[in-house]
Computed example of a mutant assay.
Amino acid sequence: MSNLDYIKNLKNQTQKKKSVTITIDEKVLDTISEIADSLEISKNQIISDISANFVADYEKSNNPNYYIINSNNYYMPEGHLHMLLGNRASAWRDAKTVIEGLVPGDYVFIFMNGTGIIASGTVKSKFMSTDYSLVKYYDRDANKDDPPIEYMIWDENYVTIDFDKKSLIEADEMLEINQKLSIDEERVLLASEFHEKISKKPFNRTKISLTEEEGKKLKDIFLSK
């Protein structure tokens, strides 16, 4: 729902209301009164809906949906850096639609094939799209064992992430970005550890849904590393 849709819906509320006395900053109340007049609704309606949205956001933050997003490094050797350095969770081309289901308040883990869980954080935005994402990828069709590296422009869906943790270490030397930044293996949660302690779910998809119990346990174990 866009902000415009939300404003339009202010005029079509049917929920039961209860009268309460509240204290609001004078300048804020004056602005709300002006907005209410322009929308031809009551200022109480605006205050009521803002409060309802706050309750929904609070409940979402305390009961998020949990997901694992694969960085797809089998084809994109720097996909994980794109996400972690850009504070986002992304998917490209045919897999990009998996990002559309993520909403603010969801909790996401970034998984890197052959390495494990390398980052986690809270979704901060609705999904956004770009059709000019420059990607570095392995051309596996040309050679699966020693694929040549290509550069392409791919379409990408992404959400912004407020990361709690990124398992990155930075070298002191001035190197290329893919050399300067590397994974801190001591702060990674391996796939084998996930399967042993949390769930037997395979990491064979771009997005994996977790139960609340699985998500909370994975978060606790990963952040403690």
Rank of each mutant, 00 (worst) to 15 (best):
V28Q: 12
M152G: 15
G79Y: 00
I99S: 03
T115L: 11
G121V: 10
L85C: 07
I41F: 05
M112P: 00
K60M: 01
L29G: 07
K136M: 10
A52R: 09
V108D: 08
N73I: 08
I149A: 07
Y132E: 04
I110M: 08
D145T: 15
N70G: 06
D141N: 13
V108L: 08
N87H: 05
S51Q: 12
D145G: 14
L29K: 11
E34M: 14
S51A: 15
V123Y: 00
H82G: 09
T122L: 00
K144W: 15
I149P: 00
I35Y: 15
Y107A: 13
E100V: 14
L102C: 01
G86D: 07
G105L: 12
L81D: 07
S125C: 01
M76E: 07
D106M: 05
I118D: 04
S33A: 08
I118S: 06
K136R: 08
D155R: 12
P148R: 01
D155S: 07
S71N: 13
E34C: 08
F111W: 13
V108T: 14
A36R: 06
D139P: 01
I99P: 04
D131K: 04
M112Q: 14
D30E: 15
P147N: 00
L134F: 10
E150V: 08
A91P: 05
P64F: 04
G116P: 02
T122V: 15
L102D: 00
H80V: 07
A119Y: 00
Q45S: 09
V108K: 06
Y138M: 13
S129D: 02
W92T: 02
H80F: 07
R140F: 13
S90P: 04
M128D: 03
A36M: 03
S61C: 09
I149V: 06
W92S: 09
D155E: 12
K27P: 06
D94R: 08
I47Q: 07
S129Q: 04
I117Y: 03
P64A: 03
I32V: 13
I50Y: 13
I32H: 14
N53P: 06
G121E: 10
D37E: 11
Y66I: 02
D139V: 02
H80R: 06
L81V: 10
D57S: 14
E59D: 15
L102V: 01
I24F: 09
S129P: 00
G86A: 03
G121I: 09
S125H: 00
L39P: 02
Q45G: 06
A36Y: 12
I68A: 02
I99H: 04
N72C: 05
T122H: 01
L29P: 12
Y107N: 07
N87K: 03
W92Q: 11
S129V: 05
V103D: 06
W92G: 12
G86F: 13
E100Q: 14
S38D: 07
T122P: 03
Y74M: 11
